[in-house]
C-alpha cells in the first residue's frame, strides 16, 4: 500500500509502518466526514431523538467513542509491529 502522504510526512522507513499510518488517517477522515455529514440529515432537527436522547448528541457520542476505539486499535497495530 503506497502512502498518500508527502515524502517528509511519511511514516518511518519500514514498509509495515505505512499501512497503519495511512489506515488510521483514512478511518479518522471517514469518521470526521460522517460526523459532519450528520448535520445534513434529519438528525439535525430540534426535536429529533434516538432512544430518548437528542439525535445529534447521540450520533456524535457514537462517533467520538469510535474515534477513541480507533486510536487504541491503531496504536495496538504499531505495538505489534514493534514486538515483531
Amino acid at each position: 500500500m503506497k502512502s498518500f502522504l508527502p515524502a517528509s510526512l511519511q511514516p518511518p522507513s519500514a514498509n509495515n509502518f505505512q499501512q497503519p499510518d495511512a489506515a488510521v488517517l483514512i478511518f479518522y477522515g471517514l469518521v470526521f466526514a460522517a460526523s459532519l455529514g450528520l448535520a445534513l440529515t434529519d438528525a439535525n432537527t430540534p426535536q429529533a431523538t434516538i432512544a430518548g436522547y437528542p439525535a445529534m448528541s447521540f450520533w456524535l457520542s457514537c462517533c467520538f467513542v469510535l474515534y477513541g476505539a480507533m486510536t487504541i486499535a491503531a496504536y495496538a497495530l504499531v505495538f505489534r509491529h514493534w514486538r515483531n
Binding site: D21, Y28, F32, S35, M56, S57, L60, C63, Y67, T71
Partner: peptide, 21 residues
C-alpha cells in the same frame, strides 16, 4: 450545545494524531 460538542470532541480526539505525525 452540540455545536461545541462537535468541535471539542473532534479536536480532542484528533490531537493524538497530530502528535503521532
Amino acid at each position: 450545545g452540540v455545536n461545541w460538542y462537535f468541535a471539542q470532541g473532534t479536536f480532542w480526539l484528533l490531537a493524538p494524531i497530530a502528535a503521532w505525525i
